[in-house]
Design a protein around this nucleic acid. Structure first.
Lengths: 152, 152
DNA sequence: TGTGAAAACCTCGTAGT
DNA sequence: ACTACGAGGTTTTCACA
């Protein structure tokens, strides 16, 4: 990828409010050239969207819990049901299917262990699990939405 | 929190490009009232920042790897060193300290196992670990930067 | 809280390199 | 494909009623 496209993406990953003219200066392009590149990046879907990041501590979801999940029901129907449950629970902010015998890892944000327990109960009432393990995060050392662009 | 502030945050968490006037309509406020609320939410730090989300598959970091890390070096110096290493590696997008005997969980985005191996080697060359376990993600079932606002 | 107007910014055309 | 300029529309920003 063009080095200037990378620099545009790098900047917008950090701050999407940057005016095109400022960004153009930083990247070493004219405003219109820079604008056209941004349009192209949006068109091509490289820039998926622009969102506001909310401070979790100030919205009472300071606690992060990881939940490891195992199942013996290796059917597509089970996966679909699980998927639906995940989508319907806003406290689940990330979910991945991992290597190995159908293991899933979820990240939840909640106000407290009590609320986590309620979410946990809701989850197991809607899908079958053979095993659930939770890990509470004591500290967030790093969290960024910016991905490395050196491989692009 | 005010219900209208919540609705503003909900909308901006999904799409930060929304014009204030549109947002105002949706929330049922006048443009200026809505604008003042947004300003206040930024001022108070509830809206931390606005960023562009990049499509990982299109920037060649489609692979997600989770890395569990354990150490026997329970010193502040070790933690500081670890912190610095984490910050310096852009492939590490999330890092948490978990409950239990000094366990850490990292999330990395990389192009391939080969590159993951290189990052892994870099990591262990810079800090001491007693144990490292990695889990490769086969599928991302959910990823959102939007946090639930029902507790705010 | 709402109105309105100025300032800033985006959007995109055109011409020239 | 980029620069430079700029018109015209949209949006932001804020003073004042």
């Amino acid at each position: 990828m063009d080095i200037r496209d990378k620099r545009i993406l790098e900047a917008l990953q950090e701050d999407a409010t940057l005016p095109v003219a400022d960004l153009a200066d930083r990247v070493g392009l004219s405003t219109s050239a820079c604008w056209r590149r941004i349009k192209a990046l949006e068109e091509d879907g490289l820039i998926a969207r622009r969102v506001a990041l909310i401070d979790r501590r100030k919205t009472n979801v300071a606690m992060t819990v990881f939940v490891g999940v195992r199942t013996s029901r290796h059917s597509m129907a089970w996966l679909d049901a699980f998927r639906k449950v995940i989508q319907g629970i806003p406290e689940i902010v990330e979910a991945y299917r991992l290597t190995g015998d159908m293991d899933y890892l979820l990240r939840l944000v909640v106000p407290s262990v009590e609320v986590y327990d309620a979410v946990y109960k809701k989850m197991i009432s809607e899908v079958d699990f053979t095993d659930v393990t939770s890990f509470i995060s004591m500290e967030e050392l790093k969290y960024t939405t910016a991905v490395p662009l050196r491989y692009a």
